[in-house]
Simulated assay, not measured.
Amino acid sequence: MSSEPASPGPARRPTIYDVAKQAGVSHQTVAMVLRGQGKFRPETLKRVSAAIETLRYRPNNAARALATSSANRIGALVFELLEVGPSKTVQGASLRAAEAGYLLEIVSLPLHDPRDDQIDDGAIRRALTLLDRADVAGILVFAPVDRLLDRQAGVDVSSLSVPLVMELEPEPARGTTLSERGMDLVIDHLAGLGHTRIAYLGGSPTWVAARRRSEAVRGALARHGLELVAELAGDWSAASGARAVRALGPDDLAGITALVCGNDQMALGALLALDEHGIDVPTRMSVTGFDGIPESGFLRPPLTTVKVDYATHGRQLLESLLARIGQPAGNIETTGNTPDDAPPDTEFLPRGSTAPPSGPDVRS
């Protein structure tokens, strides 16, 4: 009988219970963090993320994929799913995925780290870890932020085993993108009414789409020989629109005859704040939105806006990913609106929130 010690077997693959023990939380908490569900303290998220990376944990869903002999899911990373544009785009992508025989699995990510108001890199890494598995055929990223493109953020896209396609509106090319089409319509309308003192209220600069929309406004104004008199920053929410306009002083407000908002929600907040300032819309100041939410026609006054066919946009994005399934992974491919990939249909809806400039304090 040999006295030699038995050779060690292959290392056991870490489980969700190992991660929970390492992080000092329950396995239910780890599962919810991986799925992007629930709200947890930053310290808890940090411990779970550190445990996942230390143990090199990967969800073991290979058995399910082997049982079906196919990868029947498409992963979707979504920032701020409650916003109109992203939610309608995802809806369109989900319907197209179902038609192609796939289930769209959505992971909603927080835009900011609550500790320092920055992009939560840990959440992005956890989401990619969750979706990079055998039953997922590819990953689609909606409404991206710069942090996902920043290789220094610790998001190792090159290690993915499935293709990743990211929605990304291209550099301005005069009239070829969603933002350019929509903002051309808005500025043409305001300039046609006689407005020359126009301000812009945009989304968070961490969103590529927000910067593209700002560039589109400036480009449209330049065609009329105009420049922005002020640029305000929000975060796409109605509350941020109200905050930005409330912060304006009397002199700032006196120099503006029209306020262009990057989406309808911020316009809604701006309307409230202007009313609080005692400024009548549209007699003293015109206000426009973007997106064309159903409620925009029922505000007081009804909001002039641009209606966007985001559902068709979502279907187009899903088609881009379907074309890459089965091809080598390990890099980010961006897709957006190019001359060969027409932007979503836009419809300008002029309503009661815009009128020719008037009033004693309008400046030429």
Rank of each mutant, 00 (worst) to 15 (best):
E4V: 06
P8Q: 15
A11P: 02
T15C: 08
G24E: 08
T29E: 04
E53V: 09
T68C: 00
S69W: 04
S70M: 07
G75E: 00
A76E: 00
L77A: 06
F79A: 07
E80L: 13
E80I: 03
E80A: 14
P86Q: 08
P86M: 09
S94N: 11
E99V: 02
E105Q: 14
S108K: 08
R115N: 13
D121A: 15
G122R: 11
A143I: 02
L160M: 13
S161Q: 13
V162P: 10
P170Y: 04
R174A: 13
T176H: 11
G182F: 01
I187Q: 04
L201C: 06
L201N: 02
S204T: 11
R213I: 00
G234F: 00
S237P: 05
A239V: 12
A244S: 14
V245R: 00
R246P: 11
P250D: 13
D252I: 06
I256Q: 06
N263P: 10
Q265K: 01
A273L: 03
E276M: 00
V281M: 05
P282V: 11
G326M: 11
I332S: 03
E333Q: 13
E333G: 03
D340E: 12
A342W: 01
D345F: 06
A355F: 06
V362P: 04
R363K: 12
